[in-house]
Amino acid sequence: MKTKIAQTRWKQVLRAIDEIAGKDQLAFITTQRVSRQSGISDGVLFRHFSTKEVMLATWVETRGDQLRLLLDAMPAGRSGLIYLLQQLFQQKVLLNFLCCQPMDTPYLRQLLDSYRLQFNRVIQTRIELMSSTPIGVTSDVLIDHLMQSIYRAWNPDNPERDWQKEHLMNQLPWEKNEIKDNTFPSQDIMQRLALNDSGFVFDPVNGKSFTANETGIYALRFLQHSSDSEALLVAIARDFEVSQSDAARDITEFSSQLRKFLQ
């Protein structure tokens, strides 16, 4: 059982690691950094934690258990997901836990990944049980869409994260046939792609190549000139004579595949 002093020290350390994770610097964490951030000297730190790994493992388990409790408290259905998103954005420490770059030490990374995987699985199951998801779009695609949106709303380097966050606290990313501008990779990524009418696509930054069908090439060419996803939706529906809901579904799936290829 921890003494009161030990509990205080532990909370200081926890907060320090949260702040470092919030700046996406967990991969570079050192005990000196934790010491500086928490205001606790190295010597005192090591009286409470035998190694840096023990300190980080305890942080992972503490925040992981907190996340699990949040999931347990989540109501069913769409409102449950919205509740979860609101709680995540209010409890920034959990958002940092979900989104930050992991540590390099494999067993710590595995421990962190296990909590994140569990989170994904629970949310995916909830999505599968929802009645209001887009028709024909798999839960794999939707969970990926949701996690990408959460990441963008957290990412300290994203200038639009406030907008993303505000949107996610009220609406799921795939709702109302809306394809948001953040669905696709950024325009500078799209513009760098070399496209050919044959369907061959090459990314000169990561060296990957892939093929796209006629609709895919159409969408890629469009997105090289405009990031207006609404306009793309309307254009595809018009030029390929499909309904807007079908176009929205296909665009969501296409964007998910693009994000995997174009990192």
Partner: peptide, 22 residues
């Protein structure tokens, strides 16, 4: 700069493509 596309059993590139990675 290049990215390896195919490697031998020893991990040496036998196919690669030039890229531009800032």
């Amino acid at each position: 700069m290049m990215r390896k596309q195919a490697v031998t059993d020893k991990g040496k590139a036998w196919s690669c493509v030039t890229i531009e990675d800032q």
